[in-house]
Write a protein that binds this DNA or RNA. Structure first.
Length: 151
DNA sequence: GCCAACGTTGGC
DNA sequence: GCCAACGTTGGC
């Protein structure tokens, strides 16, 4: 069974175009336990919407696929990284993540304003007021609907 | 730049 | 375990 997710990134830091060029990347830097728990639930083959946050306009700009799971986020051990976590140890790492692969960039991005028109906060967490999670699950029904909207 | 809505930290 | 203070996210 394929699960669907939505993963946020600030395009000024890492955009769908960066992923398109790199083909694959380790999704590092998530430092929120709830988001991490969703990362741990991911399975190889799952699909994730690439969401551009903190930009104008915000929205879903493409699709990616989970190709590797259970990766220890390397930046937690790197004192030079802004994501360094001195409380994390090699014996029991705190932060796990996944490797994602570029699938497609949407020819027409699905903007947050559109998502707000189409879905309620209960249907899709990203339109819920006050939502701050950078990794959220998306139901199959909503995912299919989004896939239709991009055409 | 503002600020609402969180999550985290740390004293007690 | 409580909760005040503080930090962060992210749309606007």
């Amino acid at each position: 069974m394929v699960n669907y997710w939505l993963m946020k990134s600030e395009p000024a830091v890492y955009s769908i175009h960066n992923l398109q060029q790199q083909k694959q990347t380790i999704w590092d830097g998530v430092r929120n336990y709830q988001a991490r728990n969703f990362l741990k639930q991911m399975q190889i083959g799952d699909l994730a919407f690439f969401y551009h946050s903190n930009t104008q306009p915000p929205g879903i700009f493409g699709l990616m696929k989970i190709v590797e799971i259970g990766i220890n986020d390397p930046t937690q051990f790197d004192p030079n990284s802004e994501y360094y976590d001195p409380k994390s140890t090699l014996e029991s790492p705190r932060w796990q993540t996944v490797k994602v692969e570029f699938v497609e960039e949407f020819s027409q991005p699905i903007l947050l304003s559109t998502l707000k028109d189409k879905f309620s906060g209960d249907e899709l967490l990203v339109v819920k007021k006050g939502n701050r999670l950078s990794v959220i699950p998306v139901t199959e029904l909503v995912a299919k609907s989004i896939m239709n909207m991009k055409n």
